[in-house]
Each structure stands twice: as C-alpha cells, then as structure tokens.
Write a protein that binds this DNA or RNA. Structure first.
Lengths: 136, 136
DNA sequence: TAAGGAGTGCAATGCCATTGCAAAGTTTAG
DNA sequence: CTAAACTTTGCAATGGCATTGCACTCCTTA
C-alpha cells in the first residue's frame, strides 16, 4: 500500500515526505472528497497549514482536484494516474445533503454541452445534490 | 419595467418593498449571476445584511437560485417565472476565469446522468470554467 | 560540513457569510 | 383612529474557513 502511494507521488514528481504520504493515504482510504477540516480530523496531529499547502502542491501536480460542492468548504479528491484535469476528464460529484459526504462518481462521465459562440471551456464541474445510499 | 419586477415578486408571494425591488432589478439588469459583494457595490447605499436577507427570502420563494462557481463567493441569479428549482430545471453556469463573470446559460439544458443505485438526486449544478466571448 | 533550499508548524490575518438586537415601518384588531 | 403585533431594515458583532508571514527544522549538495 505504501508503495502504491509513493509511486503515485513519484509519477507526478512530488517528493514523498511523511506528511504527503499521510495526506494522500487519507484521501485514498476515504474514497471520497475530503475538506481541509476533515483531513485535519483524520490526521490527528498534523498541522492545518501543512495539509493546506500539501494539497496545494498536489493540485499543481495534478494529484488531486478541487471539488466545489456548495457546502462552503472546498473538498479534495484524488485524480486518476493518467488525469490531467482537462475538460474531458472531469467527472460527476455527488453531495449527500444529509451526511455531507461528497462522492466522486468517476464511472459517470459527464457530457460537455455546447456553449455559446466565443466561449472557451477549460474545466467542468458537475455536482448533483441529494441523498446517498447510506442515508436512504 | 418596475411593473415587471413587482409582478415577479407578487407571483411568488413576496411583498414588494423598496429594497427587494432594487435587488431584483439589479439582478435582472446585469443578466448574470452576482455575488453579495457585487450587489453591495451596485446598490451603493444598501446595507450588506439587508441584501443578504433579501436574497435568502428570494431563494426560499424560488425567485433566485444560488450558483456555486468555486470563486469562493456564492452568486445569485434570477429564476424563470415558472421555475421551481427542481432537478430538471437546473441549467448550465459558465465562469469566466479572466473577468470573474458568471453566466447563466439557460439555453443549454443539462443532461442528468445516471447515478448509482440507492442515490437520489435533488439538485444539479453544472459549472464550466473558461473564458467568455468578451475576454477572447 | 557548511550553505541553500524545501518542508513544516505556529500565529496572525483577512475575507465573506451569518446572526443578535434594536429601530423603523407596516399591517391588523379593537 | 390607535395601540399591539409583526415585518423589514441597519448596525455591530461573531464565526468559519482559507491563506499568508515568519521562523525553525530537515534534507540535499557542493
């Protein structure tokens, strides 16, 4: 497991420090998009700022993507190994309004709609709000 | 024009106070999603709190909907008269990362993707980021 | 092994949404 | 017509979360 995580970092040219391994592991374990707060809770003794900066680094290296779920907090989810966070690679996110869990529904690719002339699309973020299977 | 706005309010059983007329007019004039800050700037002498609460009322009465564009600020856009903010009525939003304008692309209906078993969708919010025609 | 750079932690700041409370305005009952 | 009740508004304060500044530590490299 630790190897998998280290490889993921190496693949994106991010030095595998202790903190980075922890943050990435937490994100992989939870299998859902996590907010800074949630990560802080999971990684009990880690500093908020460090996590924040780690996530920033991860974003720049396409290791994670931000999810805007309208909860007021930005959440973070792990990218696929071959992801470049381009338009076509954006997938669906689902926010359960009961338990505040944000799911990355990678298997539900989203259609890029036609946009008006003169507009250029770069990123897509499709969010569905509702209730998840655990809450129903 | 004033009549149009008053009618919109009446239609949703919202008392047409001075502030409410102003806020709704501003939103209609601009033809794009506005943040609280932007509204505060447009309505020079209006109090931030009042605008906030006005928008809250509007939301409850389906006069406006919130737009989460990941800019960190919630934006607000006017609903169509027959809108109930239900899943099917959600439309596309476009954030220009250059001028920070958020457009409501009402003519680009969005497809509701199939979601996993056990999940129930309630609202949809589809955001495209890129650059708009004015900035290209 | 000393110097430079990267990573980390603490404390402080700042931005924006939201709430408490009191004043002003509006409606309603008597 | 008027007092009571409710609604709307404005000011001030609070609170949550993201972000930054600075100093310390660790790791790399010449």
């Amino acid at each position: 497991m630790k190897d998998v995580i280290e490889n993921k970092l190496k693949l994106r040219s991010v030095k595998p420090t202790a903190m980075r391994l922890l943050v990435l592991q937490a994100l992989l374990n939870e299998k859902k998009a996590l907010s800074l707060n949630e990560l802080e809770t999971i990684l009990e003794h880690a500093d908020r700022t460090t996590i924040f900066r780690t996530l920033k680094t991860f974003q720049e290296k396409f290791l994670v993507h931000r999810v805007y779920d309208g909860s007021g907090m930005v959440k973070y989810a792990v990218c696929d190994d071959d992801c470049n966070c381009s338009l076509q690679e954006n997938h669906l996110h689902f926010l359960c309004t009961k338990c505040s869990t944000t799911y990355c529904l990678k298997d539900a690719p989203i259609a890029i709609p036609t946009i008006p002339k003169g507009f250029k699309a770069k990123y897509a973020n499709y969010l569905i709000e509702g209730s998840c299977s655990s809450c129903n």
